[in-house]
Design a protein around this nucleic acid. Sequence first.
RNA 1: GUGGGUGUAGCUCAAUGGUAGAGCGCUGGACUGUGGCUCCAGUUGCUGCGGGUUCGAUCCCCGUCAUCCACCCCA
Length: 415
Amino acid sequence: MKYNALKGVEDILPPDIFIWQRAEAIAKSVFSRYGFSEIRLPIIESTDLFVRSIGESTDIVGKEMYTFPDKAGRSITLRPEGTASAVRCYVEHGLNNLPSPQKFFYTGPMFRYERPQKGRQRQFYQMGAEVFGSAHPSIDAEIIVMLNNLLSELGLKEVKFELNSIGCEQCRPAYKSSLTDFFRSKLDQYCPDCKNRFITNPLRILDCKVEECIELRKGAPSVTDHLCDACRTHFDELLLRLNLMNTKYTLNPNLVRGLDYYTRTAFEVTSEHLGAQKAVAGGGRYDRLVKEFGGPETPAIGFAIGMERLIALLKDSEGAAAPAPKVFIAALGDEADRQASVIAEDLRKKGIWAELNYSSASLKSQMRKADRLGAEYVFIIGENELKDGIVQWKNLKTGDQGQYDIKTTFEVLIN
RNA sequence: GUGGGUGUAGCUCAAUGGUAGAGCGCUGGACUGUGGCUCCAGUUGCUGCGGGUUCGAUCCCCGUCAUCCACCCCA
């Protein structure tokens, strides 16, 4: 019986895994500089947690969740995103009692039951960051600047940082109704999807890709013109700070985020090199969610990076060099082979990556293997060397060759 | 859930209505103990699966599954 990985899930193996590891290491280093601590969150949660936070009307909740009953009949869901769990964790452990703001990051797989396509799979990895307990625009600015720095430290170029404010519970209802008034007059001329959006989430009509809809919605009221004073001030202060820190962004009044919990600041990082799913990271403020989850009134903001999409971009900008052994030990004959194991062990204890052939073979084929592994040095041990208590060494990059006392083999490697 | 493309060797892909080939890779050799370059030899297939048309299907038809891309939606 031959098994395949399930639809939309994939194995990550060398050489790609080296790009992942590098990206994760850089991200962790950046996060820690900004005072973010890692948290590890469960992959399963109560279904209700996601329904309440993400929103009943969203596609994620409506048709994309991996939901199943556990053995006691509780409804369990494989997390489709990380924020809901982070908020649950914050409230459950009373983290509001620690000095505000609290900053966290997390990484791990998310699950959405969707048709796979380029940049979209059913199990995908996100690296997310969340800040709880500050409504101040300086936090918005900081998290955006951090994301920017992270992406540029990773070596990402040609990404676009789009920014918008979608208002709060004060100003959004009024905006929404002036928007629906605008759409209603010509609703019959919009595409079927947009007619649907009119019911479920009229804001989404603003980023429909159909030509006719783009034409029809010209002159539609813009969120940024309908912000209440508090939201306006918040947004202006954010922009001011981004300018002060030389962070580039593009204002996009049509940027709406799909999840119900977002308020005020919304942003998205996109790339033209990704296919149709071009968002590599997205985030925003969610000032109501903590309270909704039974915590104290706690403003919050966060973002998530889609790791597969990020890696795809890193892959075409630069090939990560696969790590290679420092030394390959070629042995000729049984006794030499035993000695090779001993020497390899000795080197490894000193922190040096040493490889062996693990079976008798001609020197030629052992040399070839060393070369293909990318080893820097080959040590050669045959009967002559054993007799004289030495090893032959050869640097495969330079071709230099020499011999060393068998007891001090590592010395050649230290320089 | 909807639409389109593609399924042949480990990988990338050819081929013809008469039961398959190249390049890469891998193994070995050209030097009885020295890699890379070159040359030589060897190596792998139920041509996704099931059915139909046909004397005969890898090729044509139907179904199915897988995969890719796009829509929807999202990271």
